[in-house]
Structures are given as C-alpha cells and as structure tokens.
Design a protein around this nucleic acid. Sequence first.
RNA 1: GGGGCCGUAGUCUAGCUUGGACCAGGAUGCAAGCCUGGGGCGCUUGUGAUCUCGGGUUCAAAUCCCGACGGCCCCA
Length: 485
Amino acid sequence: MTNPERKVWSQDYSEWFHKVIAEVPIYDTRYPVKGTGIWMPFGYRIRREVLRIIREELERTGHEEVLFPLLIPDYLLGKESEHIRNFEDEVYWVTHGGKTPLEVKLALRPTSETAMYPMFKLWINAYSDLPLRIFQIVNVFRYETKATRPMIRVREVSTFKEAHTAHATREEAEEQERIGVEVYSKIFERLKIPFLKTIRPDWDKFPGAERSVAFDTVMPDGRVLQIGTVHFLGQGFAKAFDIKYMKSDGNYEHVWQTCYGISERAIAALISVHGDDHGLVLPSEVAPVQAVVIPIVYKGREEEVLKRCKEVKDALESSGLRAAIDDRKDITPGNKYYAWEMKGTPVRIEIGPRDVDSNTAVLVRRDTLKKAPVKMEGLVEEVRKLLMQIDEELAKRSKEWMSSKVRDAETIEQAKDELDARGGIVELNWCGRINCGEELEKTIDARILGVPFDKEGEIETPLSGAKCAGCSGTATKRIRVARSY
RNA sequence: GGGGCCGUAGUCUAGCUUGGACCAGGAUGCAAGCCUGGGGCGCUUGUGAUCUCGGGUUCAAAUCCCGACGGCCCCA
C-alpha cells in the first residue's frame, strides 16, 4: 500500500483532529470542566519531547528555567493599565479560603508578567544584574468566552512556555527580540512546522507591548493558527513595576524588556500539519516510538520469528533509538499496522518466516507507506537513514503545503476569492490607516495578521508607488490577511 | 456582546417533529472461544445506557417546557 490519502484531513479537519487525539490517544476531552483536557500517556510523551526541544533551544541561548506561583494578588495584576484592560474579562479569581472571603482576591495567572516583574524589581539593582533571561513552563488560565477547542482554544492552557528578559538598553532588548525570533524559528524547524513571521498590527499586539511578532502556520482546513509570539515590551512594564538599575554614572534607568510564549497550540500544529487519513505522522525527534517491530507469526515458527524480532529491537535500542515490539498474539498484523500508523510511528519493521530464512526484514516508512526489504546486516543504519529521509520529506512536504497557501492579491475582491477558495494567507498592499483596516477586514471577512518580518533585521516593508487594496490610497505596507483560529 | 443548534453504552449513531407497542435499535469497541495470520478477515457467545443533571407538565417523558452543566455553529 502506498500514498495515504489526506481527504478527511483536508476536507473535514475538525473531525479528523478530534478523532486522532481520541484514538491515539493523545488528549481526552471528556473531563467535565469546559475548556480543559487530559494529556494521555502517549500524548504526554509527545509533549515531553516537544518540551525537551524547547528547553534545549532556550538553554542553549542563555535562558534559565524557574517556577513562579500560580496565584497573583489583584493589586499586582492591575498594575499595568493596558495589560489589565485586556485580561480582566477573562481572569479566574480565587475569592475564598474555605468559607472565609479573602481580603485580597487572588487571580489564577492568565500569563505571568505581573507575577514576575515585582520580583524583577527586587532582583535587579545594577548593570551587573543584566541581562536577565528566565523562562517557565506552566499552566495558565483564561476564561474564554468563545467556543473552546481542544488544545487550540482552552480555558486551562496546560502547557505555556513563557520567557521573560530584562536589559539595560533598548538596543540590547531589540537584539534579544531578534534572538527570541531565532530561537522560535529553530524550535519550529526542528518540529518541521512551517511558519510565517508577522508583526501584528497595533490593535492586535500583546497588551502592554510595543511590538508583537507572531509565528503563524496554516492548518489543514486553510485557517491560520498562531503558534508562538515574541514581544518587545519597551519600558512600559518596567515603569509600572518600577524595575530600575544603576548605570555606571550613578543614575537610574528603567530596564528594557521582552517576553515570548509558546503553548500546546504548537503541539496541535505538529499533529495537524503532518497528519494524513491514517492518523499521526511524527518527525523522528518527537516520536515516542521511532521504530516498531511487528512479528509476522505463522504456526510452528513463532519462536524463531519472535527471537529475531527481539534481537532487532534490542539492536535498535542499544544504538540509542526508541524502539518497540508489538508481539500481541490476539490481533492480526494488519491490525497492528493501523494502530502504529495512527500513532505516527515513523518506521515499521516487519519480520516473518520469509525474512528469517533470507536474513532480511521489511521496512515501511510512515509518511509514504512504501515498503522496502533490507538485509539484516546494517539494518540499524538503514533505519537511521530512513528516519532522516522521513524527516526531510516532512519538512519539505509541510513547507510546500504552506507555500501553496500563501498568495498575493491586488484587490480585496481577489483576496476574498482566494480565501473563500483555498483559505491560507493572502498578501496585499495597505495604506496603514486603522479605519481602512477595519473596513478591509470586514469586506474580506478575515483578520489582518500584520506586516512581514521575514527579511533579516527588517521590521517593516516600505513600499513606493503602490496603491492600497482597500481604499486605493497610497500604500505604505505589505500586509497579510487570513481567517484564523 | 448578540443569535442559533445539540447532549442516547467507551466511541459514532437510530428513535424525538406527532408522548404510549422502546425495561431504547444498529455499528464500532471491549471480553471469551473457533478460524486465521505479509494490510482492519469471518463466525459464535458475552459485555456495556438510571436516554447529561435538576425541576416541571402528563394517567404516561429519551420525546414537551424551564434551569444548570457540557459540546458546536453563526453574527458583532
């Protein structure tokens, strides 16, 4: 069998996603609190590998992991006015200790700026305390009023990686912003998730930030999912929380800050971007099982086949690969194929009496389902080679998929037609006026994602002589428009 | 913020409009056995639902009404 279809995957993505997370199983949505879910063992292992990558890339670039409390007193949460204005309608409050009303209400963190920055004030005194780079991986709570969706819009974000940095100068903080963007790029590249970096428009920035750079990917149904953000905070929070350091001349200055976050949405994207109608397809780095051995057992030859399978599994493991053997007796091989394909296992190794006789095994790759016989000698090397090929193919395939979903448009009618037909992201010229932007969003029935952040170090793309697709005025920016989650 | 749809075994679903012959039918799953075994085989038997919860109408409620909780959609 070859060429697994992507029919359900693309035509009924929502159903596909629910089915996959339930059947693998990855995430159980049946817990009776709206917008929450349970990470099941196999899903948890995927999550753990993803977090390993995130930790590696952050630690490699000088970020240290910490852990802050879940509870934030109301007077801290309200300190930065713009920040609180945007969050106050979706905060969960702890108002009682037992039956006693609390004098100070406590919020379940919707994000941790207001928990961390009072401590930054205590930790940062002098130039020598900077830069400060920390991160934590925690759960955060947001009382979402829109319909929730497993992993994509939840009330308890169970996997929220937030990094926070403080610097002596604007330049250093801006440099950190670039580093944050690079770190995230590296993380998504390792996950083989294609993305576009976009500077969000002013009205869609992180509350309290000067600038927000977002990572967006395109889901199978053509809708855009934001999978990560990097924020340049300027001195807004530093002033609100009075975070100052003493300069060499003895004067004090407020620090310059950045923060950036990734949530389990990245895992939702990982699952969605690579999958097909047989279920998950995982890059080798995050696959809980990288190669599974399936014995093809015939009566009278069970033992020699199983023995060979065991040898292969041991050889794979001792070379550092995550391997498993499926020696369940009560189900047929075909059944096992489907089960391990659903789990996204990159390589399957079939070994039956024929293979024992000829000293071979059959390798099957998950992405294409193509089978190939290999000799026992050098089998481990062949598996490794195949894993690399699969990873390359996944990166290539997902990138091509994404590029096919990003197109140019001259007019808003054209933009609307493109989004109606294929979804994805449309780029067009814009004058930069907010009124025009609102009108444009309404007409196209889509969101302005913002301006590209794709060219090295370039913050906005200036235009000359071009016309705004919305009002025909002079265009000043190239913007991306999409229907998003 | 406004409007709408939905909730039946682990999962998907029939039944609801027109209340009664439904102590709720099917598929899938799960368990046992036989048969098989290089792509979900087949057969037999078994298992599993106080019809989301609470209240109301009625001689009678899965079915009608109200509320809560949960799931989903559309508009702003």
